[in-house]
Computed example of a mutant assay.
Amino acid sequence: MIDLSARMLAILAGAGSAALLIAALGFQSIGYVPCELCILQRWPHLAAAMLAALIVWADRRALRWLGALAAGLACAFAIFHVGVEQGWWEGPVACTGGISDLAAMSTQDLMSKLQSAPVVRCDEPQWYFLGLTMAGWNAICSAVLTAIWLRAATGRGIRL
């Protein structure tokens, strides 16, 4: 039997967020350019990993609750991104290619908007595995990490 304390669960959950960040950077290093929503999903994982590092030295329940919040935000951002990819709702104009008031724009304004538009769109996934996009996998992984953080935050460990 293995007993994992609440502290150890929090550290493992933070390590999971760090692993997701490393995977995202790995994909980026081989040519998958992240969109605006992809980058937004990374920030809560960075916060969760940093909180876990703090817990290594000073285990405080408040830090575990903040880790749960960070992982939950990563999950929420990933679900939002999946919705944008699936066309369930619109994403930010900056990464879904929308240009409002097209008819009222001058040619120069239109060219300026087009030149400043991002190359990578949030609503066009670049990668699928088993029918899910990176955002979909991030949502699932983030949900699992949120559950682990919540278990740690309530002060209960796990016996395996």
Rank of each mutant, 00 (worst) to 15 (best):
A53D: 03
L46H: 09
A58E: 09
A10G: 13
L63K: 06
G31D: 03
M8P: 00
E36F: 11
H81F: 06
H81C: 07
G26W: 11
A13W: 06
F27H: 14
A52D: 00
W65F: 10
I39S: 14
R42N: 15
W65Y: 07
G87T: 01
G14R: 06
Q86W: 08
A70N: 03
D59E: 00
A24Q: 12
W43F: 15
A48D: 03
V56R: 04
E85C: 08
Q28K: 08
A71M: 12
H81L: 03
W43S: 14
P44E: 02
A53V: 05
S29N: 09
V33P: 04
L51T: 11
A68V: 00
L63E: 09
I11W: 06
P34D: 08
L20R: 13
F80S: 11
A52L: 02
A58K: 11
A53Q: 07
L37Y: 05
A74Q: 01
Q41S: 15
L40V: 11
A24S: 15
G26L: 08
I55R: 01
L25Y: 14
E36V: 15
W57M: 10
Q28D: 09
H81I: 00
A78D: 02
D59V: 05
F77R: 05
C38S: 03
Q28T: 12
G31R: 01
L66S: 12
G16D: 01
G14H: 06
W89K: 00
A15Y: 08
F27I: 04
A15E: 08
G26Q: 06
R60L: 12
H81K: 03
G72L: 03
F80L: 12
A52K: 07
H45A: 15
A52N: 06
V33L: 13
I79R: 07
Q86K: 13
L12W: 09
M8V: 10
A52C: 06
F80N: 14
A48R: 00
L21I: 06
V56Q: 06
L12M: 11
W57E: 07
M50D: 09
A48F: 02
F77E: 06
V33I: 12
R61L: 08
A53N: 05
A47R: 12
A15D: 08
H45L: 14
C38V: 02
L21M: 09
A47V: 10
L73Y: 10
P34K: 02
I79L: 15
G14Q: 04
A13V: 00
G67C: 00
S29A: 15
L25W: 14
V56H: 09
L9S: 10
V33H: 10
Q41L: 05
L54H: 13
V33Y: 08
V82T: 04
A49R: 03
L37G: 05
V56A: 09
A18D: 10
Y32C: 04
L12R: 11
I39N: 14
A47M: 11
G83C: 05
M8H: 09
G67R: 00
H45E: 14
G26E: 10
A19S: 15
L51G: 14
L20Y: 09
A48H: 01
P44I: 01
F80H: 15
L37T: 04
L21T: 02
W65R: 04
Q86M: 12
A78M: 01
V82Y: 07
A71V: 09
V84K: 00
G26I: 03
A24L: 05
I79W: 11
V84P: 04
A58L: 07
S17E: 05
G72F: 13
